[in-house]
Design a protein around this nucleic acid. Sequence first.
DNA 1: TCCTGCTATGCAACGAGTTGCATGGACAAG
DNA 2: CTTGTCCATGCAACTCGTTGCATAGCAGGA
Lengths: 185, 185
Amino acid sequence: MALEHAILVSLLEQPGSGYELARRFERSIGYFWAATHQQIYRVLKRMESDGWIDARAVAQQARPDKKEYSVAAAGRDALSRWLDEPIEPESVRHELAVKIRGAAFGDPAALIREVERYREAHTERLTRYLAGERRDFPPVETAGAPDAGRELQHVVLRGGIAYERMTLAWLDDVLATLHRLASRA
Amino acid sequence: MALEHAILVSLLEQPGSGYELARRFERSIGYFWAATHQQIYRVLKRMESDGWIDARAVAQQARPDKKEYSVAAAGRDALSRWLDEPIEPESVRHELAVKIRGAAFGDPAALIREVERYREAHTERLTRYLAGERRDFPPVETAGAPDAGRELQHVVLRGGIAYERMTLAWLDDVLATLHRLASRA
DNA sequence: TCCTGCTATGCAACGAGTTGCATGGACAAG
DNA sequence: CTTGTCCATGCAACTCGTTGCATAGCAGGA
């Protein structure tokens, strides 16, 4: 239900085409709200016909034309209304936790390998986030006080970093537990 | 795609009816895999017709009959096969993060109130987790070494606790940032 | 006594998300 | 000169998840 609103935020931060939005969802926005290009194109179409956004055809050299979208007044209103709605608790969906509890009825050694792979993926993600932080949010002394939008982007990124660090620590706990159980058997 | 498998794990830990499963999903399992009773009943029906689970009618006094499900051999096989599949990265969906970035284009004061409400909900959840931990996982000295299934349940719960603690710390960061921006304006 | 809430199961309709496929030009590497 | 990757948009079919509603008996409190 919030994909529209995520798109509005992204377009307010910077107008762009469906394709560009899809790439942003792979990078920054997608870190906390995933979406494929299919979803994005479909929703953009609906948003345009609802008058939330305006499209503008942009010709380019050496690549296909694109439709650049920007937020219309009705879109800003819709976003404000949504921002005032209460936040409902996120519905979690953590496949690994299901698998861990399932390991009591399967092969724990196989799970250890999977958890290690998974851990590497999260290490990589943390590295990526930290690189993004260094790139986009330099220390105040060198860059001066950032504007509100950047501050908010930064605090969201800090959340991602905290999440990855917590996850890595937990995965170490999981691995230690699995090893303990394996050696006991 | 993993709801079936979450149900299999839960039924292996303890057979039960659709209704009972729905309540477990509100409590322990639901902490990392949410599901409503509608979903559960529908999937149970499919699983039964696929021969993954067996149903048994159970008459009760002073309440409606129920269908108690238990895992069949084919279900155990399906679970093993699924456990051996690689884990795909979770797709995140964090509404609050979208709203925080949206706050640059809306009313930050309203967001502060919302974040505070949200923070309380997480405090409550952490309290609930910790109470569950004290209840279900007493220290080894008093209870002796737990079996593998319980150890695995415990490490998953520790993950939930770590998640809530991390979230609370981050929400404090968010609130501090929002206050800083509000006082600056 | 009436109303609320719990146990227990389910249908129907809708909305959101996924997967597979299609098109087509530009450019770089082998 | 062919293969692969990037840009850019889109349809169709499908599965999954959500919301609203329905039934129905029993228990407990106002």
